[in-house]
Design a binder for these strands. Structure first.
Lengths: 122, 122
DNA sequence: CAGTATCCAGTTTGATACTG
DNA sequence: CAGTATCAAACTGGATACTG
């Protein structure tokens, strides 16, 4: 509740917080099951399929495969295949994907405060 | 990420090599279908049930009702009933809910850049 | 290793209708 | 206005089995 502007004027370029379908799509992409954690892991650098899976307990092959493809379609993740003999595939964030860093940091930050509320109630 | 370098120095059984369940829960709460937009609207100040619904195209009564309850359970939203004659119910962010502001702003910010990628590719 | 295909149970959604 | 009930349809996730 940063401002008391009840209703933005229609000409407002919708400061980041106006009703905006991009925002909607973005937050649901990031928040889609598993995606947040996958992205979080990728933020530390490129990883192989199995490395991601190992880092995310409960995530199955099928799910990871599907999510990775969605993330690729969203241009957030890039799939890299090496020509090497033991074909090696790695996944990395694209430039726009890397820019999710502040977003994920903000969420991680908030989640700590949010968790405190629970711990206190214990 | 704020916590991915954190080791299990304590006896926190939940934190495994950077895998943080709070982060997971937080991002999925925020990213759950409709929640992002509902939260976004509430950020501008308390709103009545119908005001929220009107501000979010496609959102049905049943969905809004359910989401609002989940958000309440998560202590992010507070339901306020006035004693006034035409009983009036409003929904507002709790203190911890208000602290989502930077998070949502970061997402909104990112979503703009993300959208540019599409426009450019066309 | 790095996936894909399929089956299927469980969950989520969205109309529609109805209450205080 | 502020919801709740219900029910069918769509979607999701997980296990298992199978490629290259």
């Amino acid at each position: 509740m940063a401002s008391n502007a009840k209703r933005a004027t229609q000409d407002e370029p919708a400061t980041v917080l106006g009703h905006c379908p991009r925002f909607h799509a973005a937050i649901e992409l990031i928040g889609r099951r598993w995606n947040g954690v996958i992205l979080q892991r990728l933020l530390t650098g490129p990883l192989r399929f199995s490395e991601i899976r190992r880092g995310v307990p409960g995530l199955t092959d099928a799910m990871l495969s599907q999510r990775l493809r969605e993330l690729e379609d969203a241009a957030v993740v890039k799939r890299i295949v090496t020509d090497q003999r033991p074909v090696q595939v790695t996944y990395a964030l694209t430039p726009i994907g890397s820019q999710l860093s502040p977003v994920l940091t903000a969420v991680a930050d908030w989640s700590v405060q949010w968790a405190e509320r629970d711990e206190r109630a214990t």
